[in-house]
Design a protein around this nucleic acid. Structure first.
Length: 573
RNA sequence: GCAUCGAUGGUCUAGAGGCAUGACUUAGGCCUUCCAAGCCUAUAGCCCGGGUUCGAUUCCCGGUCGAUGCACCA
């Protein structure tokens, strides 16, 4: 038991936060089960995320299938781009990225080469592990997407989604209607995504099935000022921009206002969600000194992305872990789906005032054309209105025949037309959260041990809002009617919507410690004074301080302590 | 996926080719008027498959999971 990771994972396993999946069959790497307390905590984190994105921002949540048809992922680029060309050395049986090996030996165009060509390029190159030349090898694609088929005996290919984002793009037209054709708007989704990682390790950090919370915010390409930017413009966030990374200088704290003004962050939208993420991280219990925002370097950023930042959280075990990605993805995704589906993914932007455009046009005279040209009149009319406006006769081509139409058959007129607006393809701002990584960070950062009267006390210092069990209720002795009173208080708390646990087994000190270890923020104890004056003690997990309060006030008091509208120190006076 | 090492009650651990230790936890009881006290009792274990052997949890081989290194990856 050396580092915090082992202690945290041990505690999480013992107390029902995180379990290896299906242990009775021996588990599989990259999959985990959330136990009773872990599920509760994860749900509370997701709900806090919702309170930011859905309630505060007004981006409604949608829920799309985790299996998608092939076209979706052809459009998104995952069918092509989400796979690696791999090669196995026939001598030492090690796997390598074929393109990386070729690049290492300066094979021109290695990164874009086909599998066949890469195979022949590798023939005489030495294996990076055993140095022997590869010889005749097969270069194969390893796609990180789980592939399946839809329907019985069907040829229809499906994939388990590798991200939740595509659902918001494929529902774009419906969403646009839902938001009554106005930009900006956003939609979010919390759900499972799947990536068939080659070798997942690092416990909860790299999973094959994981939970993402993603927001896709659709904005006008030229209007990237967030309407609520004032909320976070003075908010300071630790930034590790490209300049800092290139100069190897430390993180700089900057207000969002300054970061946007100086051009470090591309626009207000990106900056806004950086600050919001920081805000959310603090609220779920991630330590401020273990948060930084790192900007993607130009070569790691997707070619279409305008700007991209990762929120990284420091872990004693894993170092800086990317937990959230916040990117301005421009119009790439919508254009991709427009191209693949042939549908229109644009938004009509109405001008404040219609623009009037003066144009000279040809107005054919139907009255004159009809009698003269009979059945050809219709086509001639059409051709005339598209012709350049010249006086004195126009030659038009109808059914391969050039016809001269005299000036008596048309009129050249100056007209004013009104243009009501323009069609644009919105840009997408995408904050994408790895919920499992957040859960791990919360567990690791909450873990604490201290020595109390010569005994080690393990405490999970979760924020009250995140703690799975919100309050524990104990009778000092499980007799003399104290247990009945305590059960009554437990019921009253439950009626108030508080998750309360009753416990009367063993010594009181042991019961406090049990709750400390699972991070229950408050404990109510019913003692003999309760029978006299109707008061109970309420104990604060972090300070271990106790105050007497009226038992009748407990449900409302605990509720406000959990919601954070009241702090424990306030009730101590 | 490769290489090395490991796997014993829920947790930590002793152990040997022939009855599997101890501690903590948990449960029940006694005791106890606020921070893992004490006493009694109980529950619970040799990762899976194959081989060698009269007999394997122990030795051998394969697998699974975990740790580490390499590779891979956000």
């Amino acid at each position: 038991m050396s580092d915090v990771y082992e202690k945290v994972i041990d505690l999480a396993r013992r107390r029902g936060f995180i379990w290896p999946t299906a242990e009775c069959y021996g588990s599989v790497a990259g999959f985990i089960d959330y136990g009773p307390l872990g599920s509760m905590m994860k749900r509370r984190i997701e709900d806090l995320w919702r309170s930011f994105y859905v309630i505060q921002e007004g981006y409604y949540e949608i829920e799309c299938p985790t299996i998608g048809q092939e076209s979706i992922f052809i459009a998104s680029g995952h069918v092509k781009g989400f796979s690696d060309k791999m090669v196995q050395c026939p001598h030492c049986r090690e796997y390598h990225r074929a393109d990386h090996v070729a690049e290492g030996h300066k094979v021109p165009g290695a990164s874009t080469m086909s599998a066949e060509n890469l195979g022949s390029a590798l023939r005489d190159l030495p294996c990076p592990s055993c140095e022997k030349p590869f010889g005749e090898v097969e270069v194969f694609h390893f796609n990180l997407m789980f592939r399946t088929s839809i329907g019985p005996g069907s040829q229809r290919v499906g994939y388990l989604r590798p991200e939740t984002a595509q659902g918001m793009f494929t529902d774009f037209q419906r969403l646009l209607r839902f938001y009554r054709d106005k930009l900006p708007f956003g939609a979010v989704q919390i759900g499972k995504s799947y990536r068939n990682e080659i070798s997942p390790r690092q416990g909860m950090i790299r999973l094959r099935e994981f939970t993402q919370a993603e927001a896709e915010i659709f904005v006008h390409p030229n209007e990237k000022s967030h309407p609520e930017f004032a909320r976070y413009s003075g908010y300071t966030v630790p930034l590790l921009g490209i300049p800092q990374q290139e100069a190897c200088t430390p993180v700089v704290p900057k207000t969002m206002h300054d970061a946007v003004q100086s051009g470090l962050i591309a626009n207000e939208y990106v900056a806004y969600y950086l600050a919001l993420t920081h805000d959310l991280f603090i609220r779920i219990g991630i330590k401020p000194e273990k948060i930084r925002f790192r900007q993607h370097l130009p070569d790691e950023r997707a070619h279409y992305a305008e700007d991209c930042w990762d929120a990284e959280v420091f872990s004693e075990r894993f170092g800086w872990v990317e937990t959230v990605g916040i990117a301005d993805r421009t119009d790439y995704d919508l254009r991709a789906h427009a191209g693949e589906s042939g549908e229109d993914f644009s938004v009509f932007i109405q001008f404040d005032a219609p623009e009037t455009v003066k144009k000279t046009v040809v107005v054919p005279s139907q009255k004159a054309l009809g009698p003269k040209f009979r059945d050809k009149a219709k086509k001639i009319t059409q051709a005339l209105s598209e012709a350049a406006p010249v006086q004195g006769g126009i030659t038009v081509n109808v059914d391969g025949e050039d016809l001269f139409i005299g000036p008596e058959f048309y009129e050249v007129r100056e007209v004013e037309t009104e243009i009501q607006g323009v069609n644009i393809i919105p840009h997408v701002i995408e904050p994408s959260y790895g919920i499992d990584r957040m859960c791990y960070a919360v567990l690791e950062h909450a873990y604490d041990e201290e020595i109390v009267e010569g005994e080690e006390r393990k405490v999970m210092r979760f924020p009250p809002k995140i703690a799975p069990i919100q309050v524990a209720v104990f009778p000092l002795m499980s007799r003399d009617g104290l247990d009945t009173i305590a059960r009554g208080i437990t019921d009253a708390l439950r009626k108030r919507g508080v998750l309360a646990e009753y416990d009367d087994s063993g010594a009181i000190g042991r019961r406090y410690r049990r709750q400390d270890e699972i991070g229950t923020p408050f404990a109510i104890t019913v003692d003999y004074d309760t029978k006299e004056d109707g008061t109970v003690t309420i104990r604060d997990r972090d300070s271990m301080r106790q105050v007497r309060v009226a038992a009748a006030d407990i449900p409302n008091l605990v509720h406000s302590l959990i919601e954070g509208t009241k702090g424990f120190s306030e009730i101590c006076v």
